[in-house]
Simulated assay, not measured.
Amino acid sequence: EDLGQFIIDQGVDVAISREMVIDHGGAQPVELMFGSLTAKPVIPIFVNGVAHPFAAMERIRLLAEAVGTWAANLDKKVLMIASGGLSHDPPLPRWAEATDAQKEFLLHGHPDQADRDAREARVTAAGKANAAETGIIDINPEWDQKFMADCASADPTRFDHYTAAQMAEDAGNSSHEVRTWVAGFSALTAAHGGYQVEYEFYRPIPEFVAGFGLMIAR
């Protein structure tokens, strides 16, 4: 609540949720690093990287800069985690073309292990097939590495020129997940006045039709 009010006071409108359910993108990094979701106090911040309408990158940067300024005033160690895929365009239903059953699942579905296994099978099958045959946009390592270079620059204004339409065309409909990266690095810049990337890894993973990247900065 305090963070939400601080962000609003900086001129960025946000809302808070008392019962937001976070998905694998938010839960898995915390579980892998600390063993459980409750091992450390966590404030999940949702940045839409899934479906239209998408906020302009500048707005995401301004939101995150407010978060970073707030965190800098805490007498605590703060770890900022941003989780999302790079270029990828998995064979998933889009809202505009989805059936009623698919829309119901997108809104209210809670996938069990069988659902997750089926989804993974669809993705790996698409990865083994030719991208042109499946109608998906292939991995774009050049785009991925350019984006990671912008992350490493410690200049979040570089993200402002990214547009939703160009991202989808160049890197696939799910490349919008990198908006979390934009938020993370923008917050880190505001908190420290800059940062240095200490570790960087990139690998395209054809079987999952995705570019995988990892960066650690402080």
Score class of each variant (00 low, 15 high):
F46M: 07
T38N: 06
H192R: 13
A171G: 04
K40L: 03
V178D: 00
H176A: 00
T38M: 02
E65D: 02
E169L: 08
D144E: 12
G184K: 02
M167L: 07
M80F: 15
L3T: 08
A15W: 15
S36L: 04
D144P: 11
E58F: 00
E65Y: 01
G135W: 04
A82P: 09
M33S: 10
A64E: 08
E120N: 13
L79E: 06
A96I: 14
L37G: 11
L3I: 15
A82E: 12
Y199S: 10
A118I: 08
M148Q: 00
E58S: 05
A56Q: 10
Y162G: 00
V50T: 09
K146M: 01
W95Y: 14
L62P: 00
E142P: 03
G213V: 00
L63T: 02
R119A: 06
A114S: 09
A82F: 08
A71I: 09
K77E: 14
A154M: 08
V78S: 12
A152Y: 02
T99G: 07
F201N: 11
Q145F: 07
I16K: 05
P204D: 11
E169K: 08
D150S: 10
A82R: 04
Q166M: 01
G84P: 00
E133S: 08
Q102V: 15
M33V: 02
I45E: 07
M57I: 00
E120V: 03
P29K: 07
V14N: 07
R119S: 03
E97Y: 06
A129Y: 06
T163K: 07
I216L: 14
M57P: 01
I45S: 13
V21A: 15
E133V: 07
A183Q: 01
A101D: 13
H52C: 02
A98H: 11
D13Y: 03
I45N: 05
N130L: 11
L3N: 07
S36I: 15
G4Y: 12
R61V: 14
P111Q: 03
Q5S: 05
H108G: 11
I45M: 02
I81S: 06
H24E: 14
A39I: 09
R59M: 01
I8W: 12
A187G: 06
K128H: 12
P41D: 06
L74W: 12
I136D: 05
H88V: 02
K128I: 04
K40F: 04
A164C: 01
F185Y: 14
I81D: 06
R158T: 06
E65T: 02
I81Y: 06
A15D: 13
A56W: 06
E31I: 15
D75V: 12
R61G: 01
H108R: 15
E1C: 01
F201K: 01
S175K: 00
L214H: 12
A149N: 10
A55K: 09
G193A: 10
D160W: 04
N140G: 09
D117I: 07
F208R: 11
